[in-house]
Nucleic acid binder design. Sequence first.
DNA 1: GTCTATATGAAGATAGAC
DNA 2: GTCTATCTTCATATAGAC
Lengths: 216, 216
Amino acid sequence: MALSRISGSGESDLDAAPAVDRSKRTAIMSAATECFLEVGFGATSMDAIAQRAHVSKATVYAHFSNKEELFGTIVAERCRTAFGEGSPLTLDHPDVAAALTAVGHRFVDLLLSAEALAMYRLVVAESPRFPEIGRQFYAAGPERLFEQLSQYLTEAGRRGWLKVEEPRLAAGQFLGMLKAERFLQRILGLAPAAEETLQREIDAAVAVIMRAYAPS
Amino acid sequence: MALSRISGSGESDLDAAPAVDRSKRTAIMSAATECFLEVGFGATSMDAIAQRAHVSKATVYAHFSNKEELFGTIVAERCRTAFGEGSPLTLDHPDVAAALTAVGHRFVDLLLSAEALAMYRLVVAESPRFPEIGRQFYAAGPERLFEQLSQYLTEAGRRGWLKVEEPRLAAGQFLGMLKAERFLQRILGLAPAAEETLQREIDAAVAVIMRAYAPS
DNA sequence: GTCTATATGAAGATAGAC
DNA sequence: GTCTATCTTCATATAGAC
């Protein structure tokens, strides 16, 4: 947790006056992020945010005109950073099964992390009220992952390691198999599965893909 | 929907004994269900429920001691009924691919229905506050489906139609492949996929299972 | 049980001093 | 910009008549 460093998309070299401002603004966003992720939009009060940020409520309103804007700003910021900027998924590995296994582990770890679960819950709950955040979330997270894996599968197909006619679809199948059950169980608050169970499921998903898309 | 049938000046023709009480309670539950599914727990006011049920707010409190109890009652009731009592998934078909395709269609249709999406969103959003509903939802919905499909795969394996060592896992893989992307896109408010796209994905998922678990 | 009317409190947002 | 104090709205919940 503890997202302490929040700056906009650019480096503002003008750090003369807004020095204090920045620090308060950062504290507010940090506090608000925690509150929203913990109890959701509706149950988070501006009082609670101000209190956690060690700031008066009026100061919060000096930086964000209302609760919706604060929420939107935070989720947008979170979408840009939470999924990793570069995502160095080096998929040049010659062993397809090993590469898929590595991707699978990374995916499952990310997906089942407490922060990802909280973020997902928040976006799902509020996307009807804030249609934009659903779009942003999907584009920043799942979409990019699908795209990366899809490109890898395309390349693997080109080299004859696999026989995939629709890489995008195959990528969805692989990630879907990994997500199955476990994510749903966690998001609904059921007891988490054992580590070795997850390991087995990743291996099984890889095996299915390898068999189903084996070059004839 | 809108079960709210209010007999105006005391003309209860066909109804005999528990007329008044039941009818109000039913109207309240029906109205509350609609409200909760539409805007969620937090954004639903008891005033709105009373108004939609054509009942005073005090009457609502005469039947349910508070908002939480009303919510819990409704979701529990919904979990029991929404997923179908019998679920006549007749999986005795000799053609495995056809059977899986049928299951796939049913699953996808249910999953992408407006009501299922609303219910899912509600449960996901509120399960931290109401831990019990997450459990109930999973047991009544996904768990039963997994179990049914798992039993079918077990039987198919026994008859030599497939070679599945872990039916539960394979069931999860199949349903996970079907759920991939589309459900997420819908739950996040993105544009729905074309019908033919869904059809293709179901066929592709069936094909993967058939190839991966083909008897050697 | 059901209604009208109201108590109580919480939360979003603002006024005005510094 | 930042604070304290306050306004205003609205939602939960209840009181009391019928």
